[in-house]
Design a protein around this nucleic acid. Structure first.
Lengths: 256, 256
DNA sequence: CGAATGCTTGACGGTACTCAAAGATTGTGG
DNA sequence: CCACAATCTTTGAGTACCGTCAAGCATTCG
């Protein structure tokens, strides 16, 4: 797994059986899939799609006809209130499954936006049920992914509801670092950190200004470093303690 | 469907095929299940369990060996921080499925607590995978329920992150009223409202005192009435507008 | 009847928000 | 390659929303 594989513009392999050679699937973070499962996934797959940084992967309030797996890049799910206030629900990294809630949503839904240039594998929403039928194991995997995402949102809700500004920032920095690390995005202690402060503010439920001041305070304390869009955690223990957020090593998860 | 059926102490039917006569399943809110599905559900089912008001249905940090469907009563999912700050993630009503996230959680999890006396149908966690295998349709249903719950948490995150105190209270009152109404708990415009102000505060991410003052203000404005543990919405439009929260009619959902 | 629990209210303080404007950085077109 | 625009970051000043502390009141329960 070379660095270049994680450039946001990386593409899934071409050819008749692209999923066989999926670069993501090589990672320890993901469960291996049987040949049969791969075949089913491929039949479920429509193709790949690119969305540039800042672009809409799923438009809010507009039911999407496709499901996606994020293949490369960063994205986030969000909701906005009528007057424009935005809340980021959770961030998405390679391997994350996109669009499942829509399947069962009667209208009101969320948007998904690309932070960096992204590449996605697209799946047919119509065939979702077939997938459950043909390979119950994959249905189970999708439930797994759904439950995992809910846990993320659970954590974010605790953050927005009960943590103060410093705790929120500490928790988010550790969380994003660990997740990026997990999918092999770490290089010598640094991970790509393409967010602007508005992203962080919208994720944390804070104003832009207050987010800025809090970030600055923690940086001045020497807890982390941010340079040219890359993040380095200098005091992981301090940040974990401050945020009361201790991520345990995760089992490999399924990849659709 | 008589009033008595919703007393918190109501029990699921006894006998060899209790799910056939499940009182919940008669409601319009739930999808009908085929005879075959019912049979599978019954084989998955262990029995029923009662948890009194205030009791723990699932203890936080302790992986539960069972899954549940809430049969009667009110409950909630929550998480607590190290110093005791608590955030309620979402409220649970009859028909809600409990414990799915645990299945895929490595340790860190949530607690589930009963608000009223509750009755639950218990299922074997070990057999969850078998269920997917034997009846993919039920697997699909479980995914549906998981996605639906995630949408609830999404909404609550928007509330905690981006709504002010009045908006939060307005949104929560409407939300709880509509959900209770949906499972047939409304009587002449009133629904059972067994929460104390600490519950509401913990759900909204507000302090107890501020929750109290906000509730009082909205009540003095004549937007709702609360009497002896029952809630009546006097100005639904006003509350919906204030909270920027408009619940659309929902399709029937699966019931496991 | 006393204890426990929950609700209500006031006073005060601080965290976080808004407004405003000045740097810094990035991007773009000539 | 520079100049200008656009975007993002940073900082200060003033304010308000919400939290904490404290105490009184109401209701329920044993």
């Amino acid at each position: 797994m070379k660095f270049e594989d994680y450039l946001p513009t990386a593409s899934p392999p071409q050819g008749p059986n692209p999923c066989d050679d999926c670069a993501l699937r090589q990672l320890e973070a993901f469960l291996p899939a049987s040949a049969e499962e791969l075949k089913t996934i491929e039949s479920f797959r429509i193709g790949s799609r690119r969305v540039p940084a800042g672009g809409a992967i799923v438009e809010e309030h507009r039911p999407s006809t496709q499901l996606f797996t994020l293949y490369a890049g960063w994205a986030f799910r969000y909701k906005t209130l009528g007057d424009g206030r935005r809340q980021i629900l959770n961030f998405l990294l390679p391997g994350d499954f996109i669009g499942l809630q829509d399947e069962f949503a009667d209208g009101q839904t969320h948007g998904v936006e690309a932070v960096t240039d992204t590449t996605l594998c697209a799946f047919s929403r119509d065939k979702l049920w077939e997938l459950f039928h043909a390979q119950p194991r994959l249905g189970y995997a999708i439930t797994w992914l759904a439950a995992r995402e809910e846990k993320l949102v659970d954590d974010n809700l605790v953050t927005a509801g009960r943590r103060n500004a410093s705790e929120r920032v500490a928790m988010l920095l550790m969380h994003l670092y660990r997740r990026a690390q997990r999918v092999g995005m770490e290089r010598d202690g640094w991970v790509e950190f393409p967010f602007n402060q508005q992203h962080l503010a919208d994720a944390l439920g804070l104003s832009l200004v207050h987010t800025n001041k809090t970030l600055r305070r923690l940086q001045n304390l020497g807890l982390y470093k941010l340079d040219a869009g890359w993040l380095r955690i200098l005091e992981p223990r301090a940040l974990e303690t401050l945020g009361d957020y201790f991520e345990r090593p995760l089992r490999p998860t399924p990849l659709i």
